[in-house]
Design a binder for these strands. Structure first.
Lengths: 207, 207
DNA sequence: CTTTTATGAATGAAGG
DNA sequence: CCTTCATTCATAAAAG
């Protein structure tokens, strides 16, 4: 089946002669696999949340059963278990890499072409692990960021804002009605037990 | 989803108490286990979806008592792609829409004809607000990015621990994230649990 | 340890 | 189809 293909993802041993002692941490799934599962479980989690909300609504009229019902199936799912396995790690530029990137960015070359990306990546590879996508993303983000900062940072009295929404000049965009459900759900996704309710007996907590 | 190789440049583990460092790669799950896992999640997805449908109908009969029920659970999550009060202009596929799209993408390799788009849009409309343009864009983006990723991460040499599987050379990297439920639900869920307790416990933590 | 911020990455949509 | 942009999401890092 198709899950066999493994990405490289070689983790380096930080300082040689490390542990190898007692509790050794091993990755049981590749990041890719984890991400796939996480995504799928997110679907499940989302639907579950819908059910939670629905039950709240349904029982709000008959308050007697409302609170208990919500807690019962919501809490155990979300609060369950420890975290481990792994999350996806993201690239973090080394100071040296960052310096070089900033320098290139300041050179006014606002056009990071494909070829340029390759060159930069090659150069930065001498200072740490990096990929072309990292460079590409960095420039994309950098440009967008400075653009956004420009319109927020200066205390310009350009009140030509026709929108009814007014945002503070020294504050970045705020979303009052933003609900953070995604955080809760996805942050705990890896903690969900991969089991059917019927299979509970075949699998219990570790140690 | 698709990421090119993600270099764990500084994948430091907060190794407390001589714990060995970063991610050592061991394959602890067989293909069969992964397949079982996939099916399990598919079962969950199916059950959840059916529950949602069921509760929807339950709600509809209670509509006389509480009118606001529909809004509470449906609007924030299912119709998240639509516009909430302040309006979000960018379409966001619901998880269920995503699954359907992914499935179609895997099947009808590549050629989203006009007629096909129409059909897909109609089908997806049952799971949330969507337009043909959304579908079109989605397939365009999907294809382009899938292609780009493939060329960005070709330098893969699998881990020595992992038996590599041959994949079709002229085939795009098979996308493993398809977990469509189909009608697994009709089969006995007991058959879908893990056969090896070791693997199950490994899923939780290995520390 | 919890909350906040900074920023790498993902993605819908537009342009060519 | 391919590239680019704007917005959003998730997480490492910083602040409390």
């Amino acid at each position: 089946m198709e899950w066999e293909k493994q990405p490289p993802q070689q983790a380096e041993e930080p300082s040689g002669g490390g542990g190898a002692g007692g509790g050794m941490f091993v990755k049981v799934m590749t990041d890719e696999q984890m991400e796939v599962l996480r995504k799928q479980i997110a679907v499940y989690a989302t639907i579950c949340e819908q059910l939670v909300e629905l039950h709240k609504s349904l029982t709000s009229q008959n308050e007697l059963a409302g609170v208990r019902l919500g807690n019962l199936y919501c809490d155990p799912l979300i609060t369950s278990g420890a975290h481990k396995i792994t999350g996806r790690q993201r690239w973090t530029p080394t100071p040296m890499q960052l310096q070089i990137l900033e320098r290139i960015f300041d050179q006014g070359i606002g056009t990071p072409s494909k070829q340029k990306i390759k060159e930069i990546t090659t150069e930065l590879s001498q200072h740490g692990q990096i990929s072309e996508t990292n460079v590409y993303n960095w420039f994309q983000n950098r440009r967008a960021r400075s653009k956004r900062k420009q319109q927020a940072a200066p205390a310009n009295n350009a009140e030509s804002e026709v929108e009814t929404e007014v945002e503070s000049p020294n504050e970045k965009k705020t979303k009052p009605e933003e609900f953070q459900a995604h955080h809760i759900l996805s942050s705990r996704t890896e903690d969900l037990c991969f089991q059917t309710p019927q299979a509970s007996s075949s699998m219990h907590s570790v140690d």
